[in-house]
């Protein structure tokens, strides 16, 4: 019995979500008194740093055929690694990569998958968000192997100072019918699902030309920018910024909602945020009911002041 964690890397370094998954897997192993091993694929330079998240052993499969993201191939590697260490729990992050890989693993291993876990398992039962963040469910896994994908920003990290031994792991990889033609990385933009702070704005801003102050506030806070659905639909902001029930679900530590009324669909995508700040001219805006801090006021007056106040405190 052991825990295997798939830790994904991006441009040669492990992702924040990967460290969170590693930490989650290490905590399960500790609780159950078994070992936790990470599996890393492709060119990755900082595998040893997994030691800081409770992982003492990592398998590294740096096969040339894994240089591009192919979930079918990654699933093959994970299955072979799981066999090698007799894994009974497999952990991944519930991010773009995990969403592609985890279901393939589950079908191939005929194993139960809980996706988007927000807490450590209690026995075979795992808590996850359902109804797009409007509720939670306790899901029991009934198979000998359980697969869990962890929702980003949902389980606190327990940082340790340990070492992680990296072992080269060679495995059989059969080719697939998928070829990557081009990879377009977003330019230095902070990924919305990984951001600790998100500054989001809605129709209250009246037009795309007014987003300068939102971007400036985000920059001062080291935050990512987001928007409500109507704003993405009318083309004021790109679709990938849309958060809410039918957009991205995010769980930052701090979420600013500026000129967003707080429709139930929007709240569903952001109510996992730890602290919510609402700025709205309408004191009756439903968002205030979900807020921790609120300012009833005009964004065009409040936000510039907020930028100055943040600058001051950061100085």
């Amino acid at each position: 019995m052991s825990v295997l964690i798939y830790t994904d890397s991006n441009s040669g370094t492990l992702t924040k979500n990967a460290f969170e998954a590693a930490n989650y897997g290490a905590l399960i192993a500790k609780k159950e008194g078994i070992t936790a091993t990470a599996i890393v694929v492709g060119n990755t330079n900082d595998i040893a740093s997994l030691g800081n998240y409770g992982i003492a052993n990592a398998l590294h499969c740096n096969d040339a055929s894994l240089s591009n993201f192919d979930p079918q191939k990654i699933a093959q590697v994970i299955i072979q690694a799981a066999k090698k260490i007799n894994a009974t729990t497999i952990v991944l992050a519930h991010d773009y990569s995990g969403k592609a890989v985890a279901p393939i693993l589950a079908a191939k291993l005929d194993a139960g998958l809980v996706s988007g876990a927000i807490a450590l398992p209690e026995g075979n039962t795992v808590k996850k968000a359902v109804f797009s963040g409007k509720a939670f469910a306790n899901v029991e896994v009934k198979t000998p192997i359980k697969i869990i994908s962890v929702l980003p920003n949902s389980v606190d990290k327990a940082i340790t100072n340990g070492n992680c031994a990296v072992e080269n792991f060679s495995c059989e990889i059969t080719s697939t019918r998928l070829t990557v033609k081009e990879v377009k990385k977003a330019s230095n933009e902070l990924s919305l699902t990984e951001a600790d702070i998100v500054v989001s704005a809605g129709r209250g801003l009246k037009g795309p030309e007014n987003w300068g102050m939102i971007e400036e506030l985000a920059k001062e806070l080291g935050a990512a920018t987001a928007c409500s659905r109507p704003v993405a639909d009318i083309g004021w902001r790109p679709h990938h910024e849309h958060v809410g029930q039918t957009g991205l679900a995010i769980r930052p530590n701090l979420y600013f909602a500026i000129g967003i009324s707080g429709a139930i669909q929007h709240l569903a995508g952001v109510n996992g945020s730890k602290v919510i700040v609402v700025i709205n001219t309408d004191p009756e805006a439903p968002f205030f009911k979900a807020a921790d801090y609120g300012i009833v006021g005009d964004a065009f007056q409040v936000v510039p002041k907020l930028i100055e106040a943040v600058k001051k405190i950061k100085a």
Binding site: D110, L113, A135, F136, A137, N138, K142, N271, D292, Y293
Partner: peptide
């Protein structure tokens, strides 16, 4: 392979400051 044992609703916010 899995079964939902129970549901719960998120705790309500204690109030906006």
């Amino acid at each position: 392979s899995t079964e939902i044992k129970s549901f719960l609703l998120p705790a309500a916010k204690t109030g906006c400051k």
